[in-house]
Design a protein around this nucleic acid. Sequence first.
DNA 1: CAGTCTATTGAACAGTGTTCATCTCTACGG
DNA 2: CCGTAGAGATGAACACTGTTCAATAGACTG
Lengths: 255, 255
Amino acid sequence: MSDPEQDDSVPPPPWARSRRRQAPARVPLTRDRIVDAAYDVLDRDGFDRLSMRQVAGELGVAVSALYAHVASKNELLQLMYERLFREYPLPDADPEHWQEQLKEFARSGRARLLAHRDMAKVSMSGLPFTPQLFPYMERLIAIFRAAGLPPRLAATAGDLLATYTDAFVLEEQMWEDRRRTAELASWDEMRATIQGYFEELPPDRFPNLVELSADFFAENNDQRFDLGLEIILRGLASYIERPPGGAAAGDPREP
Amino acid sequence: MSDPEQDDSVPPPPWARSRRRQAPARVPLTRDRIVDAAYDVLDRDGFDRLSMRQVAGELGVAVSALYAHVASKNELLQLMYERLFREYPLPDADPEHWQEQLKEFARSGRARLLAHRDMAKVSMSGLPFTPQLFPYMERLIAIFRAAGLPPRLAATAGDLLATYTDAFVLEEQMWEDRRRTAELASWDEMRATIQGYFEELPPDRFPNLVELSADFFAENNDQRFDLGLEIILRGLASYIERPPGGAAAGDPREP
DNA sequence: CAGTCTATTGAACAGTGTTCATCTCTACGG
DNA sequence: CCGTAGAGATGAACACTGTTCAATAGACTG
């Protein structure tokens, strides 16, 4: 297998302290197995039970053995995050369908995070800003530019969209955690409980919370996600001048 | 549990400090004082050095003493978060100026988070969903409703706005952390370094990243924050039908 | 086979959140 | 004025955490 880790074609970013020990550097298979085990622990026990010792135990190996392949727990988390992006679809920017492309981008991002328990916590821990993700940033921004967004707006929009996705899933999985600790069986049961709680708030003090109690937790989160997404996309669309007659939008990149 | 505060305006009468050798003027430990100390530790040492022992040390007190007033570290974090909202301005919803009101709401939320180092990490740790915040949710949603947004959209919009603010500050403070560990003096220096890094990426693979290198990190984050805010507000405005003859900013597209 | 090298080990260090039996001190009843 | 009850603080302990390091075991080279 090829080595997805070290991409030497791009220099390490300046904020990454190159404290990383000189290291064997050629044990990619073991790194992969460590990441595999880490995912097993994460999915089974959740983020705050994900410890180096648990991972080592999963592999039937001493803790210190991990450190020959991984500089720190943070690096391990980073590797886990990067794996999420393997096989990420990277469509070419199509000016005609930029909104659909962005929706697809965000939806698949959310799906990828949802695939592993507490994954949004890993993503929100701030570590994952590595060169491995540059291709995805590049493509995402290309879509914005192709749509006709000016540079500064495209940059902000990329951030906004990625941030929205991460934060949405973080909240989703937080509720899932709460459900687990409350020992409620299904999401529906959970939803009913919370909705009932909001309904019974004093209506004189919280008229809106009472009235909208049914809307805070929709039947399925997909619709809620799409709605927030739609708000953002409409906002972005408002910046794009529609060329009369459907001709191609002006040159997306201007000096 | 009333709190007999130490009254500094009047010194203790001489007979109060009895023959007992200089009773160390023992200030009773309260939740408020613990939260104060926790903020001191947070501001000085950051979130991952914020431990119960550090807080206890700040107060010159044994660790276990804290647990008489606070059930767990999580509760302490929750108390810290709740304090942020004391004196939070709660304007009445004004349909005429809903966009300005929302901007003010988001801006002051951001300012509040920025006031303490790593505060967004606390806010994003998922704990803070307490009834103390209901008044703010209520008011926020009232603004959306007054603006004319339908219920489901208002609920989603509240989430979106709060989430955007939290996530933005989280990112901001993350970069601040990176700057600290990279031992770069100023934000400008940091910005220049990163911008230079992006500028020197291979232009054939990352044309947009190279071209927009100046736009990812604006001179000041205030503008970037306002821009994202504007995108969201424009998106929301697009759902509001413009009242006939009104000059309201309901139209997403303006000539 | 001998020797090198390297991945793995186990123990240790300095922390963490949390609990609990014990002790100190304050305030109140007599 | 003393004695005592009870709240509150204490220090030690438990079961963890991430990380380091000298020593060992094992495989590959000469």
